[in-house]
């Protein structure tokens, strides 16, 4: 048995979502190789080689892989697929984009967003916005799986796998045009230990940033938002926590002016400690919060800043 993990990385190093996916791969059993796709991603491949329990790292590079175009990832993975019984990747936006494409080419049913490995062919995954968990058994000889990183611990460092180059695929019918990335010195939502998240109650983009940014900076936290706040333009799409946005599970999640729609709860209810600040005492968010303050964020957040010192 051999498993291929397609890494999530920033060009310099693999993100901890990769180490968490390696943990899921270990539960399937067998040898684990990591594939790093990108351009100028040698450093990321070297960091992948340090994850403990990894047999080898494959590095594939091309301009299209530098933009993680799904067609290019598919073209890179297909020639390698014969050597593996399972292909795993984190269920982030990139993984969700290319994994089903690879599965279709291999004529297998993809297994999306697993939160538990029962055995090499049986997995648990959330459905209906996390309101139900299904246990499914796959009869496909080869499995293509996306892994919800927050459900697994990161595999430790301490490995010294070799790095081999493999051929990088192209995307002949897709051209990269541009990208606009949100620049921030704060931690990424997926990796942050503390997240402060704002909702529609904040009322405007200016207010959102005026309230959330200083609090996030004080706590060393990432900033999230509810779908309502993103739809209203108060926060960029990348901030959205929820069923179709980011699924997070930090040590501490502070929800400010978020009522707690089921789609939002689906994205954060696995956080270790949840704090809700909302002026509506009946808001559903209080039903999942460990600590709640009923009050207007306009008074509570400044008090919180003072209390934090």
């Amino acid at each position: 048995m051999a498993v291929l993990v397609i890494a999530d990385h920033d060009g310099q190093s693999v993100r901890d979502t990769t180490a968490k996916t390696v943990t899921a791969a270990q539960k399937l059993g067998g040898d684990i190789d990591i594939l790093v796709v990108g351009q100028g991603a040698q450093a990321a491949a070297d960091s992948a080689a340090k994850i403990s329990g990894v047999r080898k790292v494959l590095l594939a590079e091309s301009a299209e892989l530098g933009k993680t175009l799904a067609e290019a990832v598919e073209a890179t993975v297909l020639p390698l697929a014969d050597g593996y019984d399972a292909i795993l990747t984190p269920a982030n936006m990139d993984g969700k984009n290319f994994a089903p494409r690879i599965a279709a080419k291999l004529d297998v049913s993809p297994i999306s967003d697993i939160v538990e490995v029962i055995s090499a062919d049986t997995f648990v995954r959330p459905i209906y916005a996390g309101n139900a968990l299904e246990t499914i058994k796959s009869s496909d000889a080869k499995k293509v799986i996306t892994v919800r990183p927050t459900a697994f611990d990161a595999a430790a460092d301490g490995g010294s796998a070799s790095v081999e180059n493999v051929s990088g695929g192209e995307a002949p019918k897709t051209d990269f045009v541009s990208e606009e990335m949100v620049k921030s010195d704060r931690p990424e939502l997926g990796a942050a230990k503390i997240i402060v998240s704002g909702g529609r109650a904040l009322g405007s983009a200016e207010e959102f940033h005026a309230v959330m940014d200083p609090l996030a900076d004080r706590l060393g936290a990432a900033v999230g938002a509810s779908r309502a706040a993103v739809d209203a333009g108060y926060a960029p799409n990348d901030y959205q926590v929820g069923q179709t946005g980011k699924v997070v599970a930090p040590e501490l999640y502070i929800a400010i002016g978020i009522s707690g729609a089921i789609q939002h709860l689906a994205g954060m209810k696995d956080s270790k400690v949840i704090v809700a600040i909302n002026k509506d005492a009946d808001a559903p968010i209080f039903q999942v919060a460990d600590y709640g303050i009923v009050g207007d964020y306009k008074t509570v957040v400044p008090e919180l800043m003072t209390a934090l010192g």
Binding site: T174, V182, K246
Partner: peptide, 13 residues
């Protein structure tokens, strides 16, 4: 496209 970290624009044939 909405991607992790922001948005990406691609042109597909």
């Amino acid at each position: 496209r909405e991607v992790d970290g922001g948005v990406q624009t691609v042109a597909v044939q």
